[in-house]
Design a binder for these strands. Structure first.
Length: 906
RNA sequence: GCGGGGGUUGCCGAGUGGAAAAGGCGCAGGGCUUAAGACCCUGUCCCGUAGGGGUCCGCGGGUUCAAAUCCCGCCCCCCGCACCA
C-alpha cells in the first residue's frame, strides 16, 4: 500500500498548483468527462471513465500541451428528490442499499432528507474520492448545476434555442401513476419495468343507422381492407362522449381515456351482447360487417373493441372457426402463402381454440412475416403493390386525416404497477416543451460536423450517424425535480439531459465565478452573446456591469480554450447525452468552436455481476481506494479492458496487480541510484527493447488504448527487465528515468515518489519519452533471442538425457554461414554453385541444403556463446563447453546458422 | 425486427494473409525461506527416451503457394431502440 506516498504527492501537486491551467503560448488541449450525477457515491464505472480521462490528460500534458481538465457536478433532475423522499420515509430498501453499497454510514444517511443535504453530502464525498485518486483536475472550475450563475447560463442557452426555432410545444405520452400524480421511472416501479408505450391506431366503425362509434384498436391499420366483422366481449361496456363522439368502450378503456387529454363524458353502461348481430360500417372500405362475440377480447387492452381480419390475424381466424360462422376470410396481403395466411399458421401450430396460448406465437410469427415481406394485393385500392411496412403508415395517415382514426396509448406489457401499489396508466402530457431534434436541417448540420470529428473507437462514427438519424423530438421540460425554470414559462423545469449539453464552456466562466469576479447578475444575455458567440458588441456586453477588461479577459480565455478537444465518456451516453452535446453545439456555436473528438468506453461489472446504483452490487471509488490505493486502482482499471468492451472487476486480479506494482517500486528503488558500469550488448538490447515499448505506448495512447499502453509500459517492459537482470544486467538505471516517465500517466504517485529519488522537478510535468529509432539495435536483439532460444533447446535436449554431465555446443561451420549468406543475397542456385566448388562432402551439402529454411544468420555466434558461457552454466547447473571434438559427427551435422548443434554427454 | 459490436488456447484477452497464440489471471512443479507470504524459474491442446511431430481460432463451403485474418452461407452471444440520469 502506497497510501502515504500518494497523499504526500497529492498535497504537493495541490500546493504547487500544477494542474491549474491558464492560457499561455503553448498549444492547448481541453479534455472533459461527463460530470457525475450526485444521487450516490462515485463507483467503479466513474472510476473507469474518469481514470481514462485523467491518464490522457496527463499524457497530453507530458507531451507538451497546455491541458485543461475540469469537472463539475450534476444535480438537476428527479432522482435526488426521489432519494430524499425515500430517506425521509425511512424506506428500508433504500437505507440498506445506501449503507451497504454506497458506503454511507447510517448516521449520516438518515440526515439526508432534503435534496440540498444530499447534494452537499455527496459532493463532498465525491471531491474526497476524486482528490484521493489523484486526478489532475483544475478544481478552481468546479460547480454544481443548481448554482445561480449556472441557471443564468442555462436560461441564456434556452432563449437562444428558442430564437432559433428549435424549441416548440407539443404533447407526449408518459408512464404515470394516478395516485402519486406523477410520471414514473423504472426504479419507481414494482412491476412492469420492461413495458414500453405502444401506439395503437383506433379505427372508428359507425353502427348502422346510429351515431354510436365502435373504436377498434389495432396495430395493423393496413388490414382494414380485410375486415369481415368486429369483436366485442360478451360483457358490459360503457358509452362515453369522447371529443363530441359517442364511443362504445370497455370500462377499463374509459378510465385510461381520462389521462389522454380528451373531452370525456360518461353517458351510460350497456351490455355488449345487445349489439351482437348488428352491423357497422368499415371506414375507407365502406362495407357493412356484423358485430360478433369473442372471449379472447381483452377489455383491459386499449379500447376493448377489436376489428376482425381472419385472413391475417390468427385470433380472428380461430374465433370465427369457434363460432362456426359462415364468414370467408378476405386475403389482402401476399407473403408467399398458398392458402389463407392465418389458416396456414394456425394449422402449422395446431391451435385448438381461441384460448390456446399458441395463438400469441402464431400472431407474432405472422405479423413479423407480413410486416417484412408482405405486399398489398389488388383489393386494397391505391395501396395495392405497396410493402406492408409502407402501407401501414400510409393507411394510418389517411384514416387520421379523414378523422376516421385516432391514437390510443397502451403498455406493451401488463401490469405496470407503481411502488405505491397503484396500477400505472399512460398519460398524455399536453403543452409540453420539445427540443426539435427531428429537424432535418439541424440533423444535416450535425451529420456534416460529425464527419469532421474524430470518434474513438472509429466504428462508433457509424453508430453516431445512425443515432443522429434516428433521434426524435425530445420533451425537455418537467414538472418535478431540481433544475432551471424555462425562462419564458416558469411552470416548467428544464429537464436534466437538456441542461447539460454545452456546459463545457461554463468551466471557463466558473473560474471567474469561483474567484468572485463574475456573479450571477453579471451573466446577461449580451454578455454571453459577446463572450461565447462573438455576437453583439463589447458596448452591449457592458450590460453585465463588468469592466471592459474583465469581459475581454473572459472572452479571451474562452477563445483560447474552446472548443473541447476530447470528450471521453461511457458508452451509455452515446444515444442521449453525447448526441445532445453535438446537436446543441452545432446549433449555437460557430464552426471553429465545435467539438473535435469523442471517445467512448465500456461498463464495469463486479466479479461478473452487473453493478446497480439502486440495487447493488456496487463498488464505490472510495472503497476501492481504501483497499487498494490510488495507483493500483488506476493501473488496474486502465488495463482491465480496451475501448467500449466491458471490464470485469475481479478482486483476485487487482491483488495480483498490487504485488506487481510493489515489485516495480522495489526494483526501481534498488537500481535507480547505482553507478553505471561499462555498456554491453545486453544493455543495448535493453535500451532497444525499451524504445520499442515507448513506440507502442505512444501509439496506443494516441488512440486512447489504455489497456495496450499499460500492457507495454508496465508488463512488457517488466518482463524484459526480468530477463535483463537474470542475464546479469548491471545498468538498469539506463532506462529508469524514462520508464518512470513512461508510467507516470498511469501510476502518477509512485512515479512521482521514485522520480524524486534523483530529481527535484515534478515528473507529472516532465516531457514524455520519445521513440528514438537510432536506439534500436537489431544485432543485440538477435543475439539475445539467440541466447534464449539456445538455452531453451539445451533444456529440451537435457530432458532426454538421464544424468547429463557436460553440454557441448557447436555453432555452424563457416562454410554453412557463407553459403547461407550467398543464398540470401543471390538465391539458392548461386549458393549451391558456390558450395560445389568447396571441398566439402556431397552428403553434407545435400543434408545442409535441405534445411535452409530453419537457418538465420547471426554474426559471431561463437563469440556470443563464449561471452555467455557462465550464464548458461548458471542457468543449466551443468558444465558447458565449446569443444566440438566431443560431439558425434551425426549431431554436428545438425548445426545450422543461428542454430548450433548440441550434444549432452552423460 | 432495425442498428452497432463480438465468438481465439482453463478464464480475460492480443493477433486482420505468411512458422497461431503477446500480456494478465488461475492452476501445477521447482528454487529461496525455520515457516508462511513475497520473490525467482519452469510447465499448463495431444504425442515424443535429442532440440521433434501432430491438432487448433463458433459451424460449413470457397479464393490463395499460404487463411484466425479475404469472400459466401449459417449458428450463437452482448448492447441500444429513449425522454431516464
Amino acid at each position: 500500500m502506497f497510501k502515504e506516498i500518494e497523499e504526500k504527492w497529492q498535497k504537493a501537486w495541490e500546493n504547487a498548483r500544477i494542474f491549474e491551467a491558464e492560457p499561455n503560448e503553448r498549444q492547448k488541449f481541453f479534455i472533459t468527462i461527463p460530470y457525475p450525477y450526485l444521487n450516490g457515491n462515485l463507483h467503479a464505472g466513474h472510476t473507469r471513465t474518469f481514470t481514462i480521462g485523467d491518464a490522457y490528460a496527463r499524457y497530453m500534458r507530458m507531451k507538451g500541451y497546455n491541458v485543461l481538465f475540469p469537472l463539475g457536478f450534476h444535480v438537476t433532475g428527479t432522482p435526488i428528490i426521489g432519494l430524499a423522499e425515500l430517506i425521509a420515509k425511512r424506506d428500508q430498501r433504500t437505507l440498506e442499499v445506501y449503507t451497504k453499497f454506497h458506503d454511507v454510514p447510517m448516521g449520516d444517511l438518515i440526515g439526508l432528507t432534503t435534496p440540498e443535504r444530499i447534494v452537499e453530502y455527496f459532493a463532498k464525498e465525491a471531491l474526497n474520492a476524486l482528490k484521493r485518486i489523484g486526478y489532475s483536475i483544475d478544481w478552481r472550475r468546479s460547480f454544481t448545476t443548481m448554482d445561480p450563475p449556472y441557471q443564468k447560463f442555462i436560461e441564456w442557452q434556452f432563449w437562444k434555442l428558442k430564437e432559433l426555432g428549435y424549441i416548440e410545444k407539443g404533447s407526449h405520452p408518459v408512464r404515470y401513476c394516478p395516485n402519486d400524480q406523477n410520471p414514473v421511472e423504472d426504479h419507481d416501479l414494482l412491476m412492469g419495468e420492461e413495458a414500453s408505450i405502444v401506439e395503437f391506431t383506433v379505427i372508428k366503425f359507425r353502427l348502422e343507422n346510429s351515431d354510436l362509434i365502435f373504436p377498434c384498436a389495432t396495430l395493423r391499420p393496413e388490414t382494414i381492407f380485410g375486415v369481415t366483422n368486429i369483436w366485442l366481449k360478451p360483457t358490459n361496456y360503457l358509452i362515453a362522449k369522447v371529443d363530441g363522439e359517442k364511443w362504445v368502450v370497455s370500462k377499463e378503456a374509459f378510465e385510461k381515456l381520462k389521462f389522454m387529454d380528451r373531452d370525456l363524458e360518461f353517458v351510460k353502461e350497456v351490455d355488449g351482447r345487445e349489439f351482437i348481430g348488428k352491423r357497422v360500417m368499415v371506414p375507407l372500405v365502406n362495407r357493412l360487417v356484423p358485430i360478433l362475440p369473442a372471449e379472447f377480447v381483452d377489455t383491459d387492452n386499449a379500447t376493448g373493441v377489436v376489428m376482425s381480419v381472419p385472413a391475417h390475424a390468427p385470433y380472428d381466424y380461430v374465433a370465427l372457426r369457434d363460432l362456426n360462422a359462415k364468414i370467408e376470410p378476405i386475403v389482402i396481403i401476399s407473403s408467399g402463402n398458398k392458402d389463407v395466411p392465418a389458416k396456414e399458421v394456425v394449422e402449422e401450430l395446431k391451435v385448438k381454440d381461441q384460448n390456446d396460448p399458441e395463438l400469441e406465437k402464431a400472431t407474432k410469427m405472422l405479423y413479423k412475416k407480413e410486416y417484412h415481406t408482405g405486399i398489398m394485393l389488388e383489393n386494397t385500392g391505391k395501396f395495392a403493390g405497396m410493402k406492408v411496412s409502407e402501407a401501414k403508415d400510409k393507411v394510418e395517415k389517411e384514416l387520421k386525416e379523414l378523422k376516421l382514426a385516432d391514437v390510443f396509448y397502451e403498455f406493451s406489457e401488463k401490469p405496470v404497477v407503481c411502488r405505491c401499489g397503484t396500477k400505472c396508466v399512460v398519460k398524455l402530457v399536453e403543452d409540453q416543451w420539445f427540443l426539435r431534434y427531428s429537424d432535418e436541417h439541424w440533423k444535416a448540420k450535425v451529420l456534416e460536423h460529425l464527419e469532421r470529428m474524430r470518434i474513438i473507437p472509429e466504428y462508433y462514427k457509424e453508430e453516431f450517424r445512425n443515432k443522429i438519424e434516428w433521434l426524435k423530438d425530445k420533451a425537455c421540460a418537467r414538472r418535478k425535480g431540481l433544475g432551471t425554470k424555462i425562462p419564458w414559462d416558469k411552470e416548467w423545469l428544464i429537464e436534466s439531459l437538456s441542461d447539460s449539453t454545452i456546459y463545457m464552456c461554463y468551466y471557463i466562466l466558473a473560474k471567474f465565478i469561483n474567484s468572485g469576479e463574475l456573479k450571477a447578475e453579471n451573466i446577461t444575455k449580451e454578455f454571453l452573446d459577446y463572450v461565447l458567440l462573438d455576437k453583439g458588441s463589447l458596448e452591449l456586453a457592458k450590460s453585465s456591469g463588468l469592466s471592459k477588461e474583465t469581459i475581454e479577459k473572459i472572452k479571451g480565455e474562452f477563445q483560447y480554450w474552446y472548443p473541447v478537444d476530447l470528450r471521453s465518456s461511457g458508452k451509455d451516453l452515446v444515444a442521449n447525452h453525447l448526441l445532445f452535446y453535438l446537436f446543441h453545439h452545432v446549433a449555437l456555436f460557430s464552426e471553429k468552436h465545435l467539438p473535435k473528438a469523442i471517445a467512448v468506453n465500456g461498463y464495469v461489472s463486479l466479479e461478473g455481476q452487473k453493478m446497480s446504483k439502486s440495487k447493488g452490487p456496487l463498488l464505490t471509488m472510495k472503497k476501492a481506494l481504501e483497499i487498494y490505493g490510488a495507483d493500483v486502482t488506476r493501473l488496474y482499471i486502465l488495463h482491465s479492458a480496451e475501448y467500449d468492451s466491458d471490464a470485469d472487476w475481479k478482486s483476485r486480479e487487482i491483488e495480483g496487480l498490487a504485488s506487481n506494482l510493489e515489485r516495480f517500486y522495489s526494483l526501481v528503488s534498488d537500481h535507480y541510484s547505482r553507478d553505471p558500469e561499462k555498456i554491453t550488448t545486453l544493455d543495448r538490447w535493453l535500451i532497444s527493447r525499451f524504445n520499442r515499448a515507448v513506440k507502442e505506448v505512444r501509439e496506443a495512447m494516441d488512440k486512447l488504448q489504455t489497456r495496450r499502453a499499460v500492457n507495454y509500459a508496465f508488463f512488457e517492459i517488466m518482463n524484459d527487465v526480468r530477463w535483463y537482470l537474470r542475464r546479469g544486467g548491471k545498468n538498469l538505471s539506463l532506462i529508469l528515468d524514462d520508464w518512470i516517465k513512461l508510467l507516470a500517466p498511469f501510476a502518477p504517485h509512485i512515479c512521482e515518489e521514485l522520480w524524486h529519488l534523483k530529481h527535484s522537478t515534478f515528473v507529472s510535468l516532465e516531457s514524455y519519452p520519445e521513440y528514438d529509432p537510432s536506439k534500436i539495435d537489431e544485432h543485440a536483439e538477435k543475439a539475445e533471442l539467440y541466447i534464449a532460444k539456445l538455452l531453451e533447446d539445451i533444456k529440451e535436449v537435457m530432458k532426454f538425457v538421464e544424468k547429463p554431465k557436460v553440454v557441448y555446443i557447436h555453432p555452424a561451420e563457416e562454410w554453412k554461414c557463407k553459403a547461407f549468406e550467398i543464398a540470401n543475397e543471390k538465391g539458392i542456385g548461386e549458393a549451391m554453385k558456390w558450395l560445389s566448388m568447396q571441398n566439402i562432402d556431397k552428403a553434407e551439402i545435400a543434408n545442409f541444403s535441405k534445411k535452409f529454411r530453419s537457418a538465420e544468420l547471426i554474426k559471431d555466434e561463437k563469440k556470443i556463446i563464449e561471452e555467455n558461457i557462465e550464464f548458461f552454466e548458471r542457468e543449466l547447473q551443468i558444465k558447458v563447453s565449446l569443444d566440438s571434438s566431443k560431439i558425434p559427427v551425426e549431431r554436428k551435422r545438425l548445426a545450422m546458422p543461428g542454430k548450433p548443434a548440441i550434444f549432452v554427454s552423460s
